[in-house]
């Protein structure tokens, strides 16, 4: 059941990512047409309307993407009914906060919770805790995946909650480093494991 849930979350991610991509293409096409029809159109109110419309089109899909990512995080820590309960609790907390304090803070709750869970997941992965659940086997791919997702969550936290703050760019660089390092660890896990195992002392086997 959990395997299917993972697959459904991945399929949802693919559909949402592709859909946002298609919206961006439409946006560029519209922008092109307007730049032909209206001179210096970026200085006109039409451009502001275009930005608002794009926000309106992208926002629901971004919310789904953030929700899916937020829901992907607890699956490392929990399984079975506990996972469903954790997901339900996160979703309820998000919706309740969104209803009471606005969608931005609602997303913030989900992202901050996801950040905290992901930090715990990274700690447990580093400690070699076998209770964690990953689709892939091997230390480097697991820690890479965890660091990469933490980077993306922090990136979203930065843009949703900290965009006007003086810490915005510092947090941005932190997320960039985490994303870059996470990708290298994730994509080159087998090579890194070979490198590690070629020198003393030998550690656990790394599977691709």
């Amino acid at each position: 059941m959990i395997k299917n849930l993972n697959f459904i979350l991945i399929l949802t991610t693919i559909v949402v990512l592709s859909a946002i991509g298609i919206i961006f293409i439409f946006g560029s096409g519209y922008s092109w047409v307007q730049s032909i029809k209206v001179s210096d159109w970026r200085q006109t109110p039409l451009y502001q309307n275009y930005v608002s419309d794009m926000n309106l089109a992208v926002l629901p899909l971004s919310v789904i993407l953030v929700a899916v990512m937020g829901l992907c995080i607890p699956k490392r820590l929990f399984s079975g009914k506990a996972l469903l309960r954790a997901m339900g609790f996160l979703l309820a907390a998000t919706l309740a906060t969104a209803a009471l304090l606005g969608p931005k803070l609602g997303m913030g709750v989900l992202l901050v919770a996801a950040t905290l869970i992901q930090v715990v997941v990274i700690g447990m992965t580093l400690a070699g805790d076998r209770r964690l659940s990953y689709e892939t086997q091997g230390f480097f791919v697991q820690i890479g995946s965890a660091v990469l997702h933490l980077g993306f969550i922090i990136f979203l936290v930065d843009f949703i909650l900290l965009s006007g703050s003086p810490a915005h760019l510092d947090v941005f660089w932190l997320s960039t480093i985490l994303i870059g390092v996470g990708m290298v660890l994730c994509f080159y896990s087998a090579e890194l494991a070979r490198l590690r195992d070629s020198g003393p002392p030998p550690l656990a086997d790394e599977n691709k």
Binding site: I20, G21, F24, I25, G27, S28, S31, W32, Y50, V51
Partner: peptide, 11 residues
């Protein structure tokens, strides 16, 4: 933000 090049790059 939503400049055509930025859009297609994100796409």
């Amino acid at each position: 933000w939503y400049d055509p090049k930025v859009n297609v790059t994100l796409m």
